[in-house]
Design a protein around this nucleic acid. Structure first.
Lengths: 193, 193
DNA sequence: TGACTAAGTCTTATTATGAGAGTTATCTGC
DNA sequence: GCAGATAACTCTCATAATAAGACTTAGTCA
């Protein structure tokens, strides 16, 4: 059974994960964004099996992240390239590289992949800034609130999240609250989903 | 069969995806970062089944992203909270929200989740900046190169990526090259993996 | 001729998943 | 004092997905 309900979820995180499919989908998108175009190259680069690669490419195409294009006839040969939407996932890739490099799970002597400014050759990183002023915002100051597209479940999730952070968890002095404390909306209620 | 070789890959993207496990793992991390702590709340919030939630929580704990803590005895009750490493995934969450909001696959009238600066209440976003000067870097100027932790496969991947971008693909005038064009290293070669 | 390339499909055994029932220990309301 | 609720799971079963790798098709290369 592939999925249960990633489609109807009012959550951008679920939407993005649903579109990518799984970690194989993500590795394939990584390779495409790095410029790999051919089926066999994708297979060798990611180490995925034929069955899964074939399936994921179809899925990514259906989800509008990848375009399949015939680059020669007789025999027919196809290549795959990211669409505009697929290219948006570059941000995700940067975030993963930044986090993974920090963790360094494989105990490497440096990052495997180094993002940089092509003009200057200098390294780059992702930071959080104010949407209007572009001034930097520290992680400790970040919060979250239901947006206009939030449904009852999202509202419940956020209020439940801040609830726990203030009751048993904090009383015991051991547990920490939400990493992105919810800022309560006027119309937020804590009904069960 | 769960996975083939996500462990030995010299790639931060694979490392992060491997640690999260799959999209259910990501939804669980989302909920934990929003402050949800209890098993039943996680289940209701994410819509995951018991079997999968139980399995994923163990996996996330093994991977050091989540900590299981007894908050009461008789009867024993446990809660789950993100570790420091788990908290790093907040950046990933922000990236997904930013991308998913842009796509708006569910045709909502606004974002479901709104990240902001708690001090001012103003919205925030992720941008790419120079690692030293903190000056903004445009997407079109981004490139990539093998870092010190790159293995033969990563080097091959990057050189193959820029190869395709310059040969058949561009010759035909239809295909575009890598979104993050590789900057060639002096010691990069194009041997097969 | 034989080897090789590219882009897959097909087969089989193993593993994961969804749905939901069952379990254990305790607390709450009446 | 006992039905029902709560919390955090485990168990079962039918179905779906996966890994490994053999096979296919239509050419090119030496």
């Amino acid at each position: 059974m592939r999925s249960k309900g990633f489609e109807g979820m009012a959550c951008s995180i679920a939407a993005v994960m649903g579109a990518i499919g799984d970690r194989w989908g993500m590795l394939i998108m990584r390779d495409l964004l790095l410029g790999i175009r051919r089926y066999d190259d994708l297979r060798q680069s990611s180490g995925v099996t034929n069955t899964t690669l074939s399936d994921r490419l179809k899925l990514l195409e259906e989800n509008g992240l990848v375009e399949r294009r015939r680059y020669q006839t007789r025999p027919e040969r196809f290549e795959y390239q990211p669409t505009g939407r697929g290219r948006d996932l570059g941000l995700l890739m940067q975030a993963m590289v930044q986090i993974g490099d920090q963790w360094n799970l494989s105990n490497l002597e440096g990052p495997p992949l180094d993002f940089m400014d092509r003009r200057t050759g200098q390294g780059v990183k992702l930071i959080t800034v104010n949407r209007e002023t572009s001034g930097p915002v520290e992680r400790d100051h970040l919060g979250v609130r239901p947006g206009r597209g939030a449904d009852a479940l999202m509202t419940w999730r956020l209020s439940r999240g801040s609830e726990r952070a203030e009751s048993s968890a904090v009383r015991s002095g051991q547990s920490q609250g939400a990493d992105y404390p919810a800022v309560r909306d006027d119309h937020s209620s804590a009904r069960s989903p």
